[in-house]
Simulated assay, not measured.
Amino acid sequence: MGRAPRSRTAPLLAVALVVAAVLTGCAEAQRAAAPQLPERTCFGVFTRSDLEPLMGDGRTVTVSGPADARLTAQRRAATCNVDVDGRGRVLVAATRQPVGQSFFWPPTDQSEPAPEPLALGDKGILWDTGARVALTCKGAEDSFELELSLSGSVEHMKPGTSRALFSSLMAKYLESVKHQTRCGV
């Protein structure tokens, strides 16, 4: 009896699988690369390492907004956006208004999971995707209300870790903006 003919399909299939695995690995390596953030961003407040947990993967980082948050009666707001490949990752904002005008915050009792108070400023709130703080700045020459907010994309973070990050970021942001706006001076 003769030998059965060798199948060429098995070696070709093995080669195809190896090539596919290599190409998939290259694509994963490209996607997994963290984008390069500027050393300091968003009004000069945050360092690269502060915001890295919110960035995820991508190639191009775009930061838009003014260099500082020095709000005055004429310049009443400042916003900083950080995008990765055109997708919003971080939004940081500051708003100033005359004393006596309160900031409207929508009800939070319908949010899941429920937000919690944040012990910063006169009023603060913290939720899984951000934080907000309001305070009255009383100074010898100028008094005003100040609202600070920050939010970010938490899809790349370990569940349950985002509130601690946003609390820490807001504390740093609050101190810097109080200095920049001369709050209480």
Rank of each mutant, 00 (worst) to 15 (best):
M1N: 14
G2E: 14
A4W: 14
A4L: 14
P5S: 07
R6I: 10
R6F: 13
R8D: 12
P11E: 03
L12R: 08
V15E: 02
A16F: 01
L17G: 15
V18S: 04
V18Y: 03
V19R: 01
A21H: 05
A21T: 10
R31I: 00
A33F: 08
A34K: 12
A34R: 11
L37P: 05
P38F: 02
P38V: 10
E39W: 04
R40K: 11
T41M: 13
F43P: 01
G44H: 05
G44K: 04
G44V: 01
R48W: 00
E52N: 06
L54S: 07
L54H: 01
M55A: 02
M55L: 01
G56T: 06
G56A: 00
G58I: 00
V61Y: 10
V63C: 01
G65S: 02
G65E: 06
G65I: 02
P66A: 11
A67K: 09
D68E: 10
A69W: 10
L71M: 00
A73I: 07
R75E: 15
R76W: 05
T79L: 11
C80T: 00
D83V: 07
V84A: 03
G88T: 15
V90L: 04
V92T: 12
R96W: 09
R96A: 07
Q97M: 09
G100W: 02
P106N: 08
P106L: 06
D109Y: 09
Q110D: 14
E112M: 13
P113E: 08
A114S: 15
P115T: 03
P115C: 01
P117S: 02
L118Y: 08
G124T: 03
L126V: 04
D128S: 12
T129R: 11
G130Q: 04
G130E: 02
V133T: 02
C137T: 06
K138M: 12
G139R: 07
A140V: 09
E141C: 03
F144E: 05
E147P: 06
L148V: 01
L150T: 10
S151V: 07
S153C: 14
V154Y: 00
V154D: 07
H156Q: 14
K158D: 11
K158Y: 01
P159K: 10
S162A: 14
R163Y: 00
A164S: 12
A164T: 14
L169Y: 07
L169Q: 07
L169A: 04
Y173T: 00
L174T: 09
K178E: 10
K178R: 15
H179K: 15
H179G: 12
Q180F: 01
T181G: 08
T181I: 01
T181C: 07
R182G: 11
G184F: 07
V185E: 13
